[in-house]
Amino acid sequence: MELVCPAGSLPALKAAIDNGADAVYIGFKDDTNARHFSGLNFNDRKAQKALDYARSQGVKIFVAINTYAQSNGWERWQRAVDLAADLSVDALIIADMGVLNYAAQRYPQLPLHLSVQGSCTSAEGLRFYYREFGIRRAVLPRVLSLDQVKTVAKQSPVDLEVFGFGSLCIMAEGRCHLSSYVTDQSPNNSGVCSPAKDVRWTQTEDHLESRLNTILIDRYQAGETAGYPTLCKGRFAVEANVFHALEEPVSLNTLDLIPQLSAAGIKAIKLEGRQRSPAYVAQIVSVWRSALDSFARVPESFSPKVEWIQKLANVSEGSQTTLGAYHRAWQ
């Protein structure tokens, strides 16, 4: 299985490649990608540098143009596709039907992947994107159980990529407007979830409080691990009980599932975290490289090493890891 790794900066990209990535996905410096954070991502010069380094090491570069083109800025998405095509990157990761259509018509040779933001969870849906735009691969949303992934894989007209590790989206990707309901920005309309401009951290006498546009997301006691102030991971009150009403701040980790995913015919594993530092990228990529290599050597006796799990837990949100929806009981 191909290991597809995140990079929000050139050092992160180098860290990914030096630690064993097969492919690295990056985004441009605007709202055409779903990690549109200040100071992150690549302008055309940096993208060229990234590509040069990747080529010299025999690693692929994918460009994520995975937000929905807003009607007042269509040209930005067009330009992003043009730029990526000029750089002759190895694939584009796209969510929007309009953008897919443009890329497929204009650059028929350029491999297209359907982004997880495309929210496609069935072989029928994939068939649509395959027939209309000739996509070669799709990234599955993190809402399917392992059995459901297997079923889709059996009937899919295209290669499949699944998430292996990273912050966990509990909602079907591309189908969540929680962020824009409370702020004005969402992954679909701006490429961000819980924009930093609306986040405030305040240390009170007893608690560390996180707020999103004045709405209290969580209160942490001293020593309690904190999480990103995303709405799906806050502690809220439902019928007078205060708890993580939607999800706990945990990370997805599927090291355990490598054999099953491989048997199901999954072609690539994606690691999440373009917004994270080079240090994070280096750590998670090296663990996953070791794990995939170890599986390739002796598939029958594969089992994740304690030190791998420890290393991943160390960089995880909430410092815990979970199988997420892959594990049926979670659903």
Binding site: Q70, D96, M97, G98
Partner: peptide, 10 residues
């Protein structure tokens, strides 16, 4: 997810 006329046309 239809956010632009191009997707609408598809």
């Amino acid at each position: 997810n239809i956010y632009n006329a191009q997707a609408l046309q598809v």
